[in-house]
Computed example of a mutant assay.
Amino acid sequence: MIIKKIFNNNAILAKDSDKHEFVVMGCGIAFKRNVGDKVEENLIEKTFILKQKDASEKFKLLLEDIPTEHVSLCYDIIEYAKNILGVELNDYIYVTLTDHISYALKLFDEGLNRPNALIWEIKKFYTKEFEIGLKALEFIESETDKRLPEDEAGNIALHLINAQVNNSSNKVEDITHQTKMLQDILNIVKYTYNITLDEKSLNYGRFITHLRFFFQRLNKNEKIESEDDFLLKQVQVKYKKAYECMQKIEKYLEIELSDEEQLYLTIHIQRVTQR
């Protein structure tokens, strides 16, 4: 294995005898070394093998702009997530999550915080990914002495969710089907209320995101069960029209929604139809 490109003292692009490329990291792996030199394999700590060419090229560009310690940190988070979730993640997670966490640390240094508007949904519907996000905050704090807010656990969870969804072998078919369902549901809401929805509003964006998560759960045959229908009964009375609209959507989907799913869908309908 020889050095093809040096990013910094601790990160290089290496090439093996079969001309396969790898991003390799290790303390001092490129110190006083040159392109064409043999890689000191005993110094290798982490190896990135990205099979998707586009993801690999973007990752190389990322290495030129982001501190090596951030890349190494995200590698550990992703490996931890793979072990906990027991699934393969799309190669782009190495690009998107690394870029996100590095920028989140930059904002933290500047005293800025990005609230996550979907935090309650992520906590409820993606508990495993959210727990990994919380663990990631511990990893980050351990390495940087910076404790990022809980919202960032939600953001990390979103990256993990997307990396799993985008791994689907039927991605094109799924997206096509989901897009049609999404449009049909939006039409049900529009015709029930006889209004034009404000597609630029925050509530519209939240509604769309909720539906996309909902479709993912349908694909995985996941159902959210509720231990208490008290809130749903209150919502039925308080948001009667939104609840009736939700029932139309349930009928269109030809499935029986759990109380929890009915509750959140009704609340989203109520929000997206308010001026």
Rank of each mutant, 00 (worst) to 15 (best):
I6D: 10
F7A: 03
L13E: 07
K15N: 13
D16K: 04
K19W: 04
K19Y: 06
H20Q: 13
H20V: 13
G26T: 00
I29D: 00
A30N: 01
N34E: 10
N42P: 00
I44S: 03
E45H: 12
E45S: 15
T47Q: 13
T47M: 14
F48Q: 01
F48A: 03
S56H: 15
F59T: 09
L61W: 05
E64C: 12
P67H: 04
T68Q: 11
E69T: 05
V71D: 12
D76A: 07
I77W: 08
I77K: 07
A81W: 09
A81C: 05
K82R: 14
I84G: 06
N90C: 09
D91L: 01
D91R: 06
Y92I: 04
Y94G: 11
L97S: 08
L107A: 09
E110S: 11
L112S: 09
N113G: 01
I119G: 09
E121Y: 15
I122W: 09
K124H: 12
E129W: 04
E131H: 02
E131P: 02
K135P: 00
A136H: 06
A136L: 06
L137E: 07
S142V: 01
E143Y: 13
E143N: 14
T144Q: 05
R147C: 03
L148P: 11
L148R: 11
P149F: 12
N155M: 12
N162Q: 15
Q164R: 14
V165L: 08
N166H: 10
V172A: 15
I175R: 15
H177M: 13
M181E: 04
D184F: 01
D184K: 05
D198E: 05
K200Y: 13
S201M: 04
L202A: 07
G205Y: 02
R206Q: 15
L211V: 05
F213M: 12
N219I: 09
E225C: 04
D229W: 00
F230T: 08
F230D: 09
K233C: 00
Q236F: 08
Y239P: 07
K240Q: 04
E244M: 11
E244S: 13
C245I: 05
C245Q: 05
M246S: 01
M246N: 00
K248C: 04
E250F: 01
L253D: 06
V272H: 10
V272W: 02
V272L: 02
R275C: 06
R275W: 02
